[in-house]
Amino acid sequence: MTADQGPLRPTRDPRVTLDDLVEVLLNKGAVLHLDLIVAVADIPLIGVNIRAALAGMETMLEFGMMRNWDEATRAWAERSARRRGIDLREGESAVCRMSGGHLLTGGVYTGWRPGTVHLTDRRLVVQRDEPREILWQAELGDVRAVRLEPERTVGGEERLRLRVALADGTEELLSAQEPEKLHARLTEACAGRLDAAFPFTPAVEEERLLEGHLWFHEPRRGGPLWRGGQGRLIGSALVWKSPVDSRPALVVRTADITAVEWSAERSPTGDGGVFTLRTADGGEVRLAAGDPETWMRKLDVSRPSLPHPLPLKTG
């Protein structure tokens, strides 16, 4: 690194950007009207790569996202969803199967790859249905532990995922249409072979003093915008996150809050739900809630009374 503090320059070098372009061009861009699409073998394509369409439709079907699609498309997708199964080994028998997916990590691409989760008396397999390919599999003898884990989806919903720890120390994350059922069946199928507990304990979170819907007046170049999301007051910070963002857009350390003020202005909650936090660096954060009094009271209580730095949280 040089001492030069000039602006970073973006790169267009295809060796660096091609993977991103692939992703963007398969998922983004203007979508033309449905009437215009080409129908190939009765599969309508709306400007998506055919393989992405095939993989994605099943997921959309699973989560009820295709309600708005025309009958023909849905019928086709349902037909294709029925056409699935894995090649069993000799003497191997199927236990259960359901729509699901495997989280691919560690390579160039990180992301959920949808397919069907098959549990047999020997293996746990995630298979893409079309074109048929085994995305991931493990011998039951190698499964050390299984656990259900809540995960917030991009849409803000909480969904249970199945975490599987393997004998080689690696871990995998699977999604499944009925995670509890898969967890139960897998635990049965591995009976007597699993470790007593999952090899590590889930992350310990700070105590939540208050949690609920909160509006954040997010400053933007074109003027601030009220956004709805989830507010969380923990011992050391106020955190606000929108369901469409992957991380919080606001993290204010309670130690940095110098004042909490009421203001009688209009907000998405109607009149008078707005309150402002003033911070030590001269900044202000505008929030609104249906019950601003509760937030203001808890915020006030959570502020350390002495101007000492918060002790660093260890473990």
């Binding site: 061009l25 398969l26 998922n27 983004k28 861009g29 203007a30 979508v31 033309l32 009437d35 215009l36 699409i37 080409v38 129908a39 394509l45 400007g47 998506v48 790569n49 055919i50």
Partner: peptide
């Protein structure tokens, strides 16, 4: 311009 995604094809005769 408004770029379209990969494989946007408009067929004739439909």
């Amino acid at each position: 311009l408004l770029p379209t995604t990969f494989n946007v094809l408009v067929a004739g005769g439909g």
